[in-house]
Amino acid sequence: MVKAVRGVLVECEPAIKSILVHIDSLHQHEFIIEDLDENHLFVKEQLVQALKDKLEERLKETYRPEDPLEDSD
């Protein structure tokens, strides 16, 4: 019998996806419903924002872009 599951489709680069999968595994797999393919994940709707915040946190640790220019006002 065909089933329709409610959720959110997440599309991202494979590198980001692997971070997301890792975050998921640190949290008892509460975020991801299905691992679809290398660019797509299917995630619980009410936890998308939490997942985004976690990703943001993780990226902050490793990535620090420069502001294009600094001058005084």
């Binding site: 065909v2 089933k3 329709a4 409610r6 959110v8 299905e34």
Partner: peptide, 25 residues
């Protein structure tokens, strides 16, 4: 830079009885 992931809400259809059902839907 902010769009590491794009999201859209919707429905995943799975567990089809037959290939034919999957293909047509």
């Amino acid at each position: 830079e902010n769009e590491r992931m794009t999201t859209s809400a919707g429905f995943l259809f799975k567990d089809f009885d037959s290939l034919e059902e999957y293909v047509s839907l």
